[in-house]
Write a protein that binds this DNA or RNA. Sequence first.
DNA 1: TCGTGTATATTCACTGGTCAGTATACATCA
DNA 2: TGATGTATACTGACCAGTGAATATACACGA
Lengths: 208, 208
Amino acid sequence: MLMTSSTLPTRERIIRAAGKLFHGEGIRAVSVDAVAEKAGVTKRTLYYHFRSKDDLIAAYLDTRDQPNLALFQRWFAETEGDVADKVASLFSNLARAARHPEWKGCGFLRTSVELVNLPGHPAITIGRAHKKRVEDWLFSAFTEAGVGENALQLARQVILLLDGSFAVVLLHRDPSYMEAAADAASRLIRTALPGSAAIDRLPVPDYL
Amino acid sequence: MLMTSSTLPTRERIIRAAGKLFHGEGIRAVSVDAVAEKAGVTKRTLYYHFRSKDDLIAAYLDTRDQPNLALFQRWFAETEGDVADKVASLFSNLARAARHPEWKGCGFLRTSVELVNLPGHPAITIGRAHKKRVEDWLFSAFTEAGVGENALQLARQVILLLDGSFAVVLLHRDPSYMEAAADAASRLIRTALPGSAAIDRLPVPDYL
DNA sequence: TCGTGTATATTCACTGGTCAGTATACATCA
DNA sequence: TGATGTATACTGACCAGTGAATATACACGA
């Protein structure tokens, strides 16, 4: 593997090029030749490092898993307030990202759509695992916040709102939907919180 | 146009074949030849009725707009209870549909993903219009139910949960997410309803 | 230190196949 | 006879994947 200190390993360069093109244009719209050219490599070299285009797709998605989750966790940790505020901030940060004209939605969801006729495709497994990891992380956060047995249902509902945001904003190109999602998520969480605002702001009846 | 009483007009046959194939396999995965063959027509005939594959895609989506909305409206109308129950029934009906192994999610969302690199494509405009029609219909329903100025926000939130359901269930193939969406939607609606259950079920304090 | 073998890494040129779209001609019917 | 509709057969582009040869790096024995 010939390279200077300033160049990435070939395999990394290919994955990076694939990531930009697949995410930017769509998996099926991008040819292996285009990826190879963008990576500055011949197609044959690409096929030395990856068995097939499907392999490359899976490798590309795999590299997105950890950073994506880490970004969510960072947004969550950096936000002041209770767990509802922290979750709401996920959506406002997403809205900020979605305002960028190059924003193209969620690569995992988009891949599952593009490969809908190949149910066993490894990339779909990777997408499922990623979404599950986000859901599990939310579940822990809700459990720690003391929502009790609602944690699982809440985690799923936030996932639904997140992925709904991706889908709706990709279609309408209107990130303000994400603010509506933030509002929905924090309302749902708050009514499950021990010191539930929706209920506790009501006067407590005398006989309690 | 040669045909007997039992055959559809050629154009309709083509659109119907395109619908089955595009929805079943994905737009980019299906060739014009495949559509023509399924319609029992030569490709040249197909190109007589449609200027291009893009034209055919748009025509296919167009035929799904009205029936899709009508189905939602039927499910809504056939459900007993308040508006929250009626909306919840949309999700449980969707879950029932999604349990069918041939279920493939929402054609409008999937098209917007497959054509993400062609922002001005007519099919995307059709998809936007469809989603907007559903949202507007929900808005009217919420307004009539007396949620006041919350109607717009609620309609958007239900859309987010609907499209989130499509995306998540397509990925995980687990329709039970739709029950979580139903729960979220009806909670959100109920807290906005004049006789809000979340608040009114609490005992009324003596001094009110 | 000089070969020499071997695994890694890369290139050029190619194949077989598919795809969207078309040129041309034939048929049917008002 | 002219508009509508359908068929056969084709074009040119593209695409995933491959064959065969070459270059580099390094290990090890003489």
